[in-house]
Design a protein around this nucleic acid. Structure first.
Length: 404
DNA sequence: TCTGGGGTCCTCGGGCCC
DNA sequence: TCTGGGGCCCGAGGACCC
């Protein structure tokens, strides 16, 4: 199989290309940005078509941001300063105060995401949806897919995606998904990179282990502890030694990945395993002292999950909760009921029983409700756009706390 | 000065049954 | 009667991803 990995780049404002920029610190709709622009820069009438004309000095700076929040994503220029996803905004502001801060508009991202995937499906129908901004493509059967080792098709995809969405995209071409994803990193943004099997030693082995999709901070730290820093050093270890250190499955996978071996197919259809809603409170709440507030949020979460289930046509048997305490420890509890449900009151009731099994002496930072072991309900087929696991309303707000 | 929301998959331990 | 599997399910937690 030959695979493409394609991911779009969220640069909606070409005038910011090359500048340090982060997205995060709350939500705002793009049309609100335009409304503010019309207020502050009345020399012309601004519309959504004028994004590229917005003066750079109109955008807020990271150094002026006050409050909680994390970075959703950062431009490559911002990453040069050590800024990355999930970093606290205050910390990022110290690293690069002059970085531009854009609020996230997830409705807009989802709209672009659908357009991006529609374009690809029209050209290369064997596509695996991997998130809001990335896909894998098996282009073995696409007519002309092999021309110039895939570059011709990759260029066609880039142009079609740009015409439909205004977004650039980076594409990696390789014999499998693992290598295609790594290849796409070589030439960002808006690049095309081809990695052949024979290139693994020269192109892949010098990279740090962390570049392998699936090696996170924990595994990387363990590898470093063994003196393994690069993929080449990982590949040099005996398979049996890796299995002894990391277990049968993980150890064998590490060895295969280091040698660029990956047999996973491009999966075009998948059913969700679970649906959940969670929210972080503005301030940490105590189960006894903030009982009313907590109860209201808990009910809202159950209702939100139930609404998601109903909208997508699923019901689930395993109902669970997730808590994050003020010290960032996480606790989960779940309970499986006899019949799948999508009823908010039933979910709230079982989730409440789960909550009773947790020691609640510490303050809570986050509360979540999850429904798993999903079954599809007959007669309620979900629309294709709604089936995707990644097409959830990501940052919907919890209700305001009730007045005391 | 902090650290979001929504997913997947894996491992491990305990209970239950054969 | 006791002990020791193995298979399966459930629940908790961890790692990782976008």
């Amino acid at each position: 199989m030959d695979a493409f990995y394609a991911s779009v780049e969220w640069l909606r404002y070409p005038q910011l290309r090359g500048l340090p920029m982060v997205i995060g610190g709350g939500r705002r709709r793009e049309d609100e940005l335009i409304a503010r622009l019309n207020q502050q820069r009345p020399e012309r009438v601004w519309t959504a078509a004028d994004l590229a004309d917005i003066p750079v000095d109109f955008f807020p700076l990271l150094r002026d941001y006050v409050g909680r929040g994390v970075i959703t994503t950062a431009s490559y220029a911002a990453r040069q300063f050590g800024i990355g996803s999930a970093m606290g905004l205050m910390k990022a502001a110290r690293l690069c105060p002059r970085a531009i801060l854009l609020p996230a508009d997830f409705d807009e991202y989802r709209r672009c995401s659908r357009a991006f995937k529609r374009v690809i499906l029209d050209i290369a129908p064997v596509m695996e949806d991997r998130g809001i901004d990335e896909v894998y493509i098996d282009f073995t059967q696409v007519p002309g897919g092999q021309r110039e080792g895939g570059r011709v098709l990759a260029r066609l995809l880039q142009k079609s995606i740009f015409d439909a969405t205004g977004l650039s995209c980076s594409i990696g071409v390789a014999p499998n998904k693992l290598l295609a994803k790594m290849a796409s990193e070589f030439n960002k943004p808006n690049g095309i990179s081809v990695v052949h099997e024979a290139d693994v030693q020269t192109l892949i082995w010098p990279l740090p282990c962390r570049k392998i999709n699936g090696i996170g901070p924990k595994t990387d730290a363990r590898l470093q502890g063994h003196g393994i820093h690069t993929i080449g050093e990982l590949a040099a270890r005996e398979r049996a030694w890796l299995i002894a250190q990391f277990g049968n499955s993980h150890g064998a996978w590490l060895h295969d990945a280091a040698w660029g071996r990956d047999e996973r197919p491009v999966v075009t259809e998948s059913e969700p395993v679970s649906l959940s809603r969670e929210t972080t409170f503005e301030r940490d709440l105590h189960a006894v002292h903030d009982r009313a507030e907590l109860g209201a949020v808990f009910t809202w979460l159950a209702e939100a999950v139930a609404a998601d289930l109903q909208r997508k046509g699923y019901a689930g048997k395993t109902i669970g909760i997730k808590l994050r305490f003020d010290d960032f420890r996480i606790a989960t509890r779940d309970q499986t009921v006899a019949e799948p449900t999508q009823d908010a009151r039933r979910i709230r009731q079982v989730a409440g029983q789960c909550l009773k099994r947790v020691d609640l002496s510490r303050r809570l930072r986050l509360l979540g409700v999850r429904v798993g072991s999903l079954v599809r309900l007959d007669g309620q087929p979900a629309a294709p756009d709604q089936v995707s696991n990644h097409d959830l309303p990501l940052f919907q707000q919890a209700p305001a706390a009730p007045e005391k």
